[in-house]
């Protein structure tokens, strides 16, 4: 009993629900209408799942779309992150000429878009699309398949610095939880580069761990 007892005075503090108020880092994971959020990082760092997760909130009120250039995006991962299945449409486009036209068509009618950006898309096409998103108040997440978006496109830049997995141990267990260390920068981060960690357990709840010391987080990478 002594082991499982709760120190008087603390139990109430722990169980009292907190008012819904985002921390600055949590705010990075909520899309803003008319703004472009850029995800930067190598394949495998968990950014596709994060990008789909960002669509969960807009999908509660309207259709959202994932623009897939590789033909590999799985809606199952999106559903797990809370995107409503009936509101998610996946558009597959690997044609460099059609990609800007298709994206523009989608920006004309959809509230939120997750778009993989082919490597060779011209800068001026991206700038025009950004202007269209701003005019139509569409929340856009872009992930470049090349070396990142040109400057002036993204309102907020989220760069994956490292990913660690828990659960698998030399043949035992299974992948259970991912910790993704992100660096936020750009106007959306008030011009200050901030690092924070996101925990993803495969459900729609993504926990933000603020103010991590990046060296400590990278210690267990892999």
């Amino acid at each position: 009993m002594g082991i499982h007892g709760v120190t008087p005075g603390f139990a109430e503090d722990i169980t009292t629900p907190l008012p819904v108020q985002y921390t600055r880092e949590e705010g990075f994971l909520h899309l803003q209408p008319g703004r472009v959020t850029e995800l930067i990082g190598a394949p495998g760092t968990g950014l596709t799942r994060l990008g789909l997760k960002l669509l969960a909130e807009p999908s509660r009120v309207a259709s959202v779309v994932a623009l897939d250039t590789r033909g590999w995006i799985s809606p199952e991962a999106a559903w797990e992150t809370g995107v409503l299945a009936e509101r998610l449409v996946i558009v597959r486009c690997d044609d460099l000429i059609l990609w800007p036209k298709v994206t523009a068509a989608l920006l004309e009618g959809v509230r939120a878009v997750y778009a993989e950006v082919p490597a060779l898309i011209k800068d001026h096409d991206l700038r025009r699309l950004t202007g269209l998103a701003r005019a139509r108040k569409v929340a856009v997440v872009m992930r470049s398949m090349g070396n990142g978006l040109p400057t002036g496109i993204a309102h907020l830049r989220l760069r994956a610095l490292g990913v660690t997995w828990e659960g698998a141990d030399r043949g035992h267990g299974k992948l259970k939880k991912r910790r993704l260390v992100l660096e936020a920068s750009g106007k959306g981060a008030a011009g200050i580069t901030r690092r924070f960690e996101v925990e993803d357990e495969g459900t729609d709840a993504v926990r933000v761990v603020s103010d991590v010391v990046i060296d400590q987080a990278r210690r267990s990478v892999g």
Binding site: V61, A62, S63, V65, P75, E76, W79, A85, E86, L88, V89, I90, V91, R92, C93, D95, L98, K101, V102, A105, L106, L107, E108, G109, V110, R111
Partner: peptide, 29 residues
Amino acid sequence: DESSSIEADRAFARAQALLGPDRVLQGRA
């Protein structure tokens, strides 16, 4: 948001016209 739904349908129809019907998809578990 019904008005959004109508606009989204129009956007998907336009994307379908550009890419073909097999490129605008919905999944079901």
